[in-house]
Amino acid sequence: MKKVAIFFTALIGLVACEKNPPAKTTDLRAYAVETVGKITTVRNLPCDTIIGTNAQGQPYGAGKYSFFSLETGQWIPNVDSNTNRWDLAFSGTIIRVNNQTSGPGFGGAFVYSGAFDALTAVPTDSVFRVDNHPISYAITRGSGKAWYTYDGPTNLLTPIPGRTLVIKTASGKYAKVEILNYYRGGTTPSATAADSIKIRDQRFFHFRYTYQGNGSLQF
């Protein structure tokens, strides 16, 4: 069994924050990628993590995306946002695909209800949706709609088990993605955890995927 582990630590100065207190999140752009057989698992990918709260107590991020290439298994710098180098872009609960209003690629996506492992091939009659930023996205936003539920009283976001994102990459290849967790460390804070912890640790994506590089529909 071939086992590749890549570990990145990147310090990025994307976040301009003259007015806000120094963002503690900048040194958190540490993510891990591990490939076992056909499945690549990405952990702790920060996706516009929280840099402060507004007067109403609502947390906000810098409004930037984290671009990711399913083909290379790497985070892609923001300067390459207008290229085919990335397949998925994450920012909070938004996941964008590289097509139309989001990028120059041939990307698309739809949500398959069923286990990741059970999806062995993309059904031939599949229709891939595209983004129409900011009105709609191929992967619909909103609690209970595509890949997550959000609970108002506890302020917790949980990926729905049994939802698989079927992705067409920027170059028109296929991949399947399962979002595993939304919090740093891969564990959702308990319902009773302090709001400060829930805010600090959110927007860290954990997902696994299988990429089919030969263009076929089989995984």
Binding site: A115, F116, N181
Partner: peptide, 13 residues
């Protein structure tokens, strides 16, 4: 038709 997660976080029936 309902799913939970196994120890690794992957969805299972």
């Amino acid at each position: 038709l309902e799913y939970i997660r196994d120890a690794s976080g992957a969805s299972v029936v």
